[in-house]
Amino acid sequence: MIIALESAVRLAVWLLLAPLLPGVINKVKAWVAGRRGPPVLQLYFDLARLWRKSVVMSTLASPGFVAGPAIAWVALAGAAMLMPLGPAGGAISFKGDVLLLVYLLALARFCTAWAALETGSAFGGMGAAREVSFAVLSEVALITAVLALSVQTGNITLSEMLSLSVGSGAMLLAAGLFGVLLAENCRVPFDDPNTHLELTMVHEAMVLDHSGPPFAVILHGASIKLLLFAVLLSQVVLPVGKLSPLAGTATLAGAVLAVTVCVGLVESLTARMAFRRVPLILTASFLLCLFALLLALKGGA
């Protein structure tokens, strides 16, 4: 009973807090540019409105057009439930859960890309092709980062892997994971979430044909993914799990906020880069994770 209640509270926290992050990023961007910007809660309003709207579906789209976003959302929420939250740990924790998390993210990618191709639109194809191709490199970086964490702690359970900070390699790993965060969540410099030019979009081009509740589910899923990566990154650097519950929660919240502000600053200060340069940056992220892995291996020997 208590476990069910605890899981429900945890899920509610994830689902309710996630849309805050894009709002914070937009606020930071507006602040740097000297504008007032949209309210921090803008995404909540958008989601509420989309949820009430009717749906326009392409005549070509199969039921997968609706099923894809739903399954992707479930996968992302499931991944969020696996992610430990500081001293509270994860909802379910077992050996190898970290791999389930990585592959749930992949499942979400599969479903989003599949739904993007449903309409037969060239833009959907463009976005999906870019997403899955760049993901090849970011997946390598992510797996390497997970390896570094497991070598450092001698464990492959998420809650154990994140309870210690990685030590000397932490900064390298954090930099590498930050690159993965930007790429996986389609932020500048990999993709511009605010662009209105279909030819240069990645994630936005994939969801161009969605509308109404399915679109709301996609947007909400994307914000869960962003929060997930921010939490992961915070716990890689800070030993949140070892603090007392109150201090741990406060530290985690502060760190997530700091990561979000960093994303906003990166977005304000850099331009998006040409597509052919994306592999270079992702390779650099991979190399950072690889060096962290080697440091972890050497540190133990």
Binding site: K53, V55, V56, T59, V66, T119
Partner: peptide, 22 residues
């Protein structure tokens, strides 16, 4: 979730249109 979204879609009203071609 799929069943729910499917029902929600029908309830909110569904319109079929050709794919947007820019």
């Amino acid at each position: 979730a799929v069943a729910w979204l499917w029902r929600k879609r029908a309830r909110n009203g569904l319109r079929r249109a050709p794919t947007w071609g820019c």
